[in-house]
Simulated scan of single mutants.
Amino acid sequence: MKKRVAILISGGGSNMAALIDSMDPDHPARPVLVVSNVPEAKGLLRAAERGVPAAVVDHRRFGRDRAAFETALADVLAEAGTDIICMAGFMRILGAGFVRRWQGRILNIHPSLLPKYRGLDTHARAIAARDTEAGCTVHEVTPDLDAGPILGQARVPVLPGDTPEALAARVLEMEHSLYPAVLRRFATGDTRPILWS
């Protein structure tokens, strides 16, 4: 039985598209739903182009009531029979209650070599620190931000004169390969990290 994957997005959905495109007939999982918290997210069009059902749970409708937003999100995911959640540019921090409900079944891709540079502005921070390499990490989501078990990492050199935008573009290319590779392995129950240099 193939695992049922739901992908959470907030923007363009390039990592979502890479994940969907990787789920060929031999893949141990299949995409069943794309959910955005932003109604105008361009990724919703990409999902439609690929024939994957999409839904919107607009966080703005819930004001400051994060629990109500997460309940609505969880209901949509449960209705789709979700086995694995892949966060792909989903710009909301999920609360501990939501994470515990799906513990061990939520993946996220983060644009740094965790545990370095949790949170935002990772490329600018790597350049400011004069790091010689940056990269991306796929990890399990836990209640602590960007602190879950590492399932994959890929390294990208920081080049002389790099801007955060240039570095981000090169890291994003690597994300599009690493995330699908990790999902394919994770869907079989294999959590050994994939480490690319």
Rank of each mutant, 00 (worst) to 15 (best):
G148L: 02
M174E: 15
L73S: 03
G13Y: 00
A134S: 14
I93W: 10
R192F: 09
R50Q: 10
A68F: 06
V38Y: 14
F69P: 00
P157R: 07
T142N: 04
L45N: 15
A124I: 08
D146A: 12
F186R: 03
V158S: 01
E140T: 15
H59V: 10
V56Q: 07
A124M: 08
I84R: 04
T191V: 09
P180D: 07
K116Y: 14
L107H: 00
E40T: 15
H123S: 07
I106K: 01
T137I: 05
L195G: 11
H27K: 13
H139D: 02
S36Y: 01
G161D: 10
V138C: 01
P160E: 14
G152D: 03
L114F: 04
M91N: 07
P180S: 09
P28Q: 10
F98W: 05
L145A: 12
P193R: 08
V5T: 04
L107C: 07
A6V: 03
K2R: 15
V57Q: 00
P143W: 04
P160M: 12
T163D: 06
G189Y: 05
A147C: 14
V158Q: 00
R185W: 08
L195W: 10
G104V: 11
V56H: 05
M87P: 00
L159V: 13
S14Y: 00
P25L: 13
W196D: 09
C86T: 01
D146V: 11
L113C: 10
G152C: 08
L178A: 01
V156C: 02
M16K: 03
A48W: 12
R192Y: 07
E173G: 14
N15T: 14
V182M: 02
D162R: 08
G43F: 01
L94W: 01
N108E: 08
V57T: 05
D24H: 15
L120P: 08
R66W: 07
R4Q: 12
L195P: 04
V156T: 12
I150Q: 06
V158A: 01
P157G: 13
G63Q: 11
P25K: 15
R30M: 15
A88Y: 02
A169C: 12
L94C: 06
G161Q: 09
G161P: 06
C86I: 03
L113T: 03
L33W: 02
M87F: 08
G51Y: 02
G95D: 10
A169E: 15
T122G: 06
G12V: 09
A6I: 06
R155P: 02
S197G: 14
A47N: 03
T122E: 02
T163P: 05
L45R: 13
R130C: 11
K3E: 10
G189A: 08
G12H: 10
R192D: 13
T122N: 06
I20T: 05
G148S: 11
G11H: 00
G97H: 10
R46V: 06
H59C: 06
T191A: 13
S112L: 02
P111F: 05
L94V: 05
K3N: 09
P149L: 15
H139W: 09
E70R: 02
